[in-house]
């Protein structure tokens, strides 16, 4: 008898936790599995790459090995005009593919079959790289967005797509989302307008399929700043973003956002060293009323973290 309660109790604890995990993990997994990806979900997954945060391809979380997002106005192979221009996600050889390309089940059943049958996404190979686009198809009277492996379908090579596009301001979307995660922007800004309010100011809440293949989702739980899921629809000025990131008090005197001037790196776009000390001294003079206008914000160099971050904000957060 001495050990009876001990054994029964231990088994009971295990069984109860098992039941709890069945209800809270296994049952919802059926719902998650049937979620069909939307255009937003595809766009996020394809522009972010395999995952954001610590990973084999990006161990220091600096945004390495991310796909490049471009807007194509002409066909990289034939040179024919594309109207309206389309978004393409260029994976150079060796760049790991987005999760839904590796695991098409993440797309949901309908989008998966479209992506595999029409989009040929299962034919993409990491070693030779690929270009992906998003197209629409009608299935049973409903419009579905699905991923297309343009390398297999249209013969677009990654190099040709990049050469056709040039250095556009959408280039570093995946790297920009990485900066969002590492700099902890999501400790204050949320990416989740709430379902019953927030419509007027922050826009529509996300739909069920808006997250398929996204990692991490980084909704944010502690809103100390505006929701930014649709910020680029409210304010698409690169100039404003630049000033706001360098010192938020330049454009919003009551903001409590930290300055992100360190994302500029050492030099500006012309290769001149940025003198942060001088800038701050002049800004303090401006604050004390000794100057009529604040010092000029330096134009960032083209491969800096701030450029990547603004690329992501203005391209993805629409």
């Amino acid at each position: 008898m001495a050990f009876r309660q001990y054994k029964l109790g231990t088994v009971g604890v295990g069984l109860m936790l098992g039941l709890s995990m069945t209800i809270t993990l296994m049952l919802p997994s059926f719902d998650f599995r049937s979620a069909e990806s939307t255009w937003v979900g595809l766009d996020k997954a394809l522009s972010n790459g395999r995952l954001i945060g610590f990973s084999y391809e990006d161990p220091l979380v600096r945004g390495a090995n991310k796909p490049i997002t471009v807007i194509l106005k002409e066909d990289p192979k034939t040179g024919a005009t594309i109207d309206p221009p389309i978004r393409a996600y260029v994976y150079k050889p060796g760049t790991p593919f987005a999760s839904p390309i590796n695991h098409p089940d993440n797309l949901g059943p309908t989008v998966k079959s479209l992506g595999v049958e029409r989009g040929k996404i299962d034919q993409a190979a990491k070693a030779s790289g690929a270009v992906f686009t998003i197209e629409y198809a009608d299935v049973n009277g409903q419009e579905w967005a699905y991923p297309v492996n343009a390398t297999a379908v249209k013969g677009w090579s990654p190099d040709a797509a990049l050469a056709t596009a040039g250095d556009q301001n959408s280039r570093y979307v995946g790297r920009g989302k990485t900066v969002y995660i590492t700099e902890g922007c999501w400790w204050c800004h949320t990416l989740l307008p709430e379902q019953t309010q927030d419509w007027q100011v922050f826009g529509a809440p996300p739909y069920l399929g808006d997250f398929n293949g996204e990692m991490p989702t980084a909704f944010g739980s502690d809103r100390k700043a505006p929701d930014i899921l649709h910020v680029a629809s409210r304010n698409s000025s690169r100039e404003w973003m630049m000033m706001h990131f360098f010192n938020p008090r330049l454009v919003q005197p009551n903001s409590i956002m930290p300055r992100f001037d360190y994302l500029w790196g050492r030099v500006d776009v012309d290769g001149n060293k940025i003198d942060f000390k001088k800038w701050r001294a002049e800004y303090d003079e401006y604050r004390r009323g000794l100057r009529s206008h604040p010092p000029e914000v330096p134009e960032y160099a083209r491969d800096t973290e701030i450029r990547a971050l603004i690329d992501w904000v203005l391209t993805s957060l629409k």
């Binding site: 979620a35 395999r50 993440n106 996204e214 989702t217 909704f219």
Partner: peptide, 17 residues
């Protein structure tokens, strides 16, 4: 979720689980 690259709502739900 991190070890096996589970994504989307699964990841969000596991985070808060």
């Amino acid at each position: 979720a991190e070890m096996f690259n589970l994504t989307g709502l699964t990841e969000a739900y596991l985070t808060f689980w």
